[in-house]
Design a protein around this nucleic acid. Sequence first.
DNA 1: AAGGCTATTGAAAATCATTTTCGCTATTGA
DNA 2: TCAATAGCGAAAATGATTTTCAATAGCCTT
Lengths: 157, 157
Amino acid sequence: MQPDPALPNLNQEPELLKTVLNKEGFRFTSQRQKILDLFQSAALGHHLNAEEIHQQLLDQGEKISFSTIYRALHVMVRLGLLQELELAEGRKYYELNTPFMEQHHHLVCVHCGNVEEFEDATMSQVGSSESTSRGFSLLNCQFTVYGICPSCQSLLG
Amino acid sequence: MQPDPALPNLNQEPELLKTVLNKEGFRFTSQRQKILDLFQSAALGHHLNAEEIHQQLLDQGEKISFSTIYRALHVMVRLGLLQELELAEGRKYYELNTPFMEQHHHLVCVHCGNVEEFEDATMSQVGSSESTSRGFSLLNCQFTVYGICPSCQSLLG
DNA sequence: AAGGCTATTGAAAATCATTTTCGCTATTGA
DNA sequence: TCAATAGCGAAAATGATTTTCAATAGCCTT
Ligand SMILES: [Mn+2]
Ligand SMILES: [Mn+2]
Ligand SMILES: [Zn+2]
Ligand SMILES: [Zn+2]
């Protein structure tokens, strides 16, 4: 079967980003597009911080300042395109945002920093019921499990 | 920073702090005792950061340096006396640690910073089962729900 | 297509929580 | 008691993030 040329694909994403930005009074820029592209081409389950974004863009020959990266990340979080994660240790990580009921959660090795993802509908349910029962309007939930991964366990004997 | 998994979570009587510290080669000091006292006399559900600890000790006439506060917090987390929380916004909060199956979780207003606690055994269950199924040795879980509290909702219209 | 308004950019300086350094002091164990 | 050294305070250093500011570039209206 051939792809339906009428269906949207990643090549049309630039249009979408511009639309989403302009709707809220932000401007479309090539820097913001390049940063979003990084997330879209990153492996599933991969989280990026400002430093890694800067390095990856450098690697592909794009020069960009840290202030621009941080500003772009904030804007895209505000627009709901990205999700900010407090995985651990003094820096923030980002990933593409997903619909609330499909949110996944994280298992972090505190020794090597390895992060694994998992889905569990229980989380969203508990999050919703707790917030409604207290009159909070829910924005999002983060469930983070800290432990030591198998390979670090064997290293630490 | 995560607690050392080999160390049991001990209940804290004032005279026990010395025992717990010395067992691991740390020394008992009046500064560490005063900091732990703050947590033990704080209202349930109250979380403290380094700045607040410093201010509260100043208020009660105790002079202490920030380096000492940070060092004490790290030691007490390592000993399993305190739990470190990543509630939000660039600073770490601490509270008295509790046994794993009694852990509680947090509902944070992203507008005013108000934090509410709740217990739900589901969290610990999911945390345990996810970590065992991947061979991780579990240290702890944090479930943080972000939203807007009732009073901030009315302020924001 | 041109022009004005102003959001955005890059570079550098500023912030701010936390960490480190270092000379001195206090705790521990013998 | 006393030597060894963990811990202390003050000040400097760190490191991620934010702000400042002059120059540039999107977006909108002619
Ligand atoms: Mn993820
Ligand atoms: Mn709490
Ligand atoms: Zn590991
Ligand atoms: Zn609020």
